[in-house]
Nucleic acid binder design. Structure first.
Lengths: 231, 231
DNA sequence: AGCCCAACACTACCAAAGGGACTATCTTGG
DNA sequence: CCAAGATAGTCCCTTTGGTAGTGTTGGGCT
């Protein structure tokens, strides 16, 4: 008619990284939406945090694209939907894994508050740093439980232990990094006057940070900057 | 009338952390919206990344709440708006700094791809890790420049050197953490078979991570778990 | 035997954020 | 003198976050 020859009423919403996060889970085994939401909360949220409501929408999108199939079962009179990946879905996942991705995103209201510490008092900053450490500790407790479950073999997906070890290492290192920093920063802030705006410069720290960054840059140029060999 | 005694047509949109991020910048000096957007890109985006369009909206919100005032100047025939903080704004900023905040958020499509590496080939994972290191290196270059500017005194806001040193330390530590991990992970993945799903477990690494987490937990219970003393 | 509560299985809605397209003026190097 | 790039924004649409709400089922307790 007046438009193009494709007059599709539902123009197939585009697949986002979140879609592939769900598809990746479906690649492990079939799940109900509820279970997918749980996995999202418990593990995926550490590297790809998304709202629960999205987790219920994305699998429908996957089905529309033919990357997953939905089967409805019933538990008593209550229906539930089980999703499983299709061969086309597996191929799409592999293609996604071969594409390049955006860099990481870090955001922290707490760090923002430290950055603007000169608008408040010294104790505000100390409390913010303390809250950050408390948050890290809470996360740590969960990680320790998961790690122990893998070591004594009671964890689900024992075949994923190698992958989980690698990624888990990063997630714990990031927590370690935050904890160490918050501890150090508390010590620094304690020596400050009551108005953080008048805090003296710490030239030595600045130089140490700069040296770390420069050393990293050299390491990169020396060893890692060439891409992995193609077959 | 029929409603409450407040029949405000525009119910004063609520202030978000992003609002306070802008307010914090205004606490340093007056800025034009364009300059605010630049500051957001160059520095705040490392701990509170927000889209450019938001940066143009938030100051208007601040004005509606009486936390900032806008004055329009002209450069030739082109008008521009300069925002400056009000005393009420300074008080609001101090109140915000005294409140507790949410924990940090980390998200990375690249790490997600490593997590689902078993859906693709070994080389995909190696390339993803390489891309991550390249991204870290790019960021590092910018940080090194900023750091050097502070050391030779050519940076803006010399009075903020203490604050910037503390926060800059964290931001560089996080980059260091990502780089070290990606380098280590590349070495691990290189020993894997072509299908990462069949990679052998690395019990030693898992145990090392667990020990790190447990040590951190003990450090917290031993020293830091009590909140800072109130005056 | 009956009841309560936690886990299960979602849907609906709206504010906030993302992000690109678009306009227009000013400055500066070649 | 002219083009390119910096300045100074506006507009709009989509995606996401996050909360509230609805009802079901199974297990434990009394």
């Amino acid at each position: 008619m007046a438009g193009k020859d494709r007059d599709a009423p539902d123009p197939a919403p585009v697949l986002t990284p979140t879609s592939f996060a769900l598809l990746g889970l479906l690649n492990l085994q079939p799940w109900t939406t509820y279970e997918l939401a749980q996995q999202m909360d418990r593990t995926l949220s550490r590297m790809w945090p998304r709202a629960r409501s999205k987790v219920y929408e994305e699998p429908k999108k996957l089905v529309r694209h033919g990357l997953a199939r939905a089967t409805t079962e019933t538990v008593g009179r209550r229906p539930r939907t089980v999703y499983r990946i299709t061969p086309k879905g597996r191929r799409a996942l592999a293609r996604w894994l071969a594409q390049s991705a955006d860099g990481p995103v870090f955001e922290s209201e707490q760090v923002l508050k430290v950055f603007f510490a000169d608008g408040g008092g010294r104790l505000d900053t100390l409390r913010t740093l303390h809250d950050l450490r408390a948050w890290v500790h809470e996360r740590t407790m969960v990680n320790v439980e998961v790690g122990r479950a893998y070591l004594d073999g009671s964890a689900p997906f024992p075949s994923r232990i190698a992958l989980n070890t690698v990624v888990g290492r990063l997630l714990d290192d990031l927590l370690e990094c935050l904890d160490t920093w918050a501890d150090w920063a508390s010590g620094v802030v304690e020596t400050w006057p009551d108005a953080p705006g008048e805090a003296p410069a710490d030239q030595a720290s600045l130089e140490a940070t700069l040296r770390q960054a420069e050393a990293r840059a050299e390491r990169w140029l020396g060893s890692g900057s060439s891409p992995p060999a193609q077959p």
